[in-house]
Amino acid sequence: MTTQLDSTATEPVRPARRRRRLPDTAALAVVLVALAIFFSTQSPFYLTPNNLLNILVNAAVIGIIAAPGTLLLVAGQFDLSVGSGAAFIGVVMAWSATQWGIPTAVLLALAAGLVIGMVNGFAVTVLGINALITTLATLAILRGLGQVIAGGQTLLLSGFGDLGNARPFLDIPVPVLILVAVVVVMALVMRFTVFGRSMYAIGANPVAARLAGIRTRTMIFGGFLLSGLAVSVGGLILVSQLGAASPNAAMGLELSVVTAVILGGASLAGGRGTILGTVLGVLILGTLNNGLTLMNIDSFWQDVARGVLLLAAVGFDQLRLRFLSDK
């Protein structure tokens, strides 16, 4: 008798959860398709295979960094130092390559990304500093260190173009292949691993998660490490594509990453977000930037569009939270 009551009580819950999640990704898909249709009517070049591939290439670095950024936001944390971090990684790569060669420079750049994640994670989990203050501080620190190492100049780098420009498989550029790999791995981590489920629990209720035996500090620290590693990969791709490293590179990258993650349905309050939603958010941003460029819209208006998207996404999230709290 008890089993029957339990089964009937749980049956309505699953469809309700699906109904809450479906409109998020469905609405994003509709927006993406609508943008594609609009820009295809404005430019004959939009739907060409080369242009669609360009959208993916230009969105690759944002998507690579946004994937672990989703995991952090799900846990109620975020990393605003990713833009200056990517520029710093590029400078480390270019400077080290002239000293010890490209293989050693790649290892040093990856290690630098992990150190960035360790510093952010230590400040947040051990020192107890708010993630906003921590990553704003490291944003300034990394931008300044990049200027110091580069001497305020752009550093040229040759012999490292394959990572950002090679097309080894089905004429698909390496950055797109890396993006697909990162997205698949992060989706599996968030959905099927204890680490991923723990981050959801931490974001939903950190006190309850700690009482349930989840090592919240360790999990959040791991999230910042993944973010630092993704920043290092993104920075290496950027310097490979450009053949040079500038301490002023990747300006506004953190805005694009945060916009994509929140636009994808992740909540600032934590406990909510998916990699699929983030991917759709990244594609919407990439489509918008590409379409406006094809329409010869000034790049400053593209910044305005990204800001409006971020404001709309956060506003929608706040309205959703208010609606749920009223119920």
Rank of each mutant, 00 (worst) to 15 (best):
L170C: 07
P173N: 11
G271A: 05
L229H: 00
V189N: 02
G252C: 05
A67E: 11
R17S: 12
N130F: 02
F221L: 12
F300M: 02
E11P: 10
D24E: 11
L310S: 14
R14L: 15
G196R: 02
D303K: 10
G101H: 03
V233T: 04
R143Y: 01
G270Y: 07
L22G: 03
L157Q: 12
L71I: 09
V82K: 06
L73M: 11
G128W: 13
T287C: 06
A209V: 10
V308I: 14
N290D: 01
F221S: 06
I37F: 13
W100Q: 04
S227Y: 01
G121K: 02
G164I: 08
L309R: 01
L225S: 04
F45G: 09
F224I: 07
P173R: 09
V92G: 07
M1R: 12
Y46S: 10
N290V: 01
L177Q: 08
L263I: 01
V148T: 11
Y46W: 02
T287K: 04
F88A: 11
I202S: 10
L285R: 00
L145N: 04
T98Y: 04
G223R: 00
F300L: 02
G76C: 07
A204V: 00
A140N: 08
L211P: 06
T41Q: 15
G243V: 07
A9T: 10
D298K: 03
A313S: 13
S267A: 03
K327D: 13
S227Q: 00
N54G: 05
L268I: 14
G164M: 05
M190K: 14
E254W: 00
A260Q: 06
A67R: 04
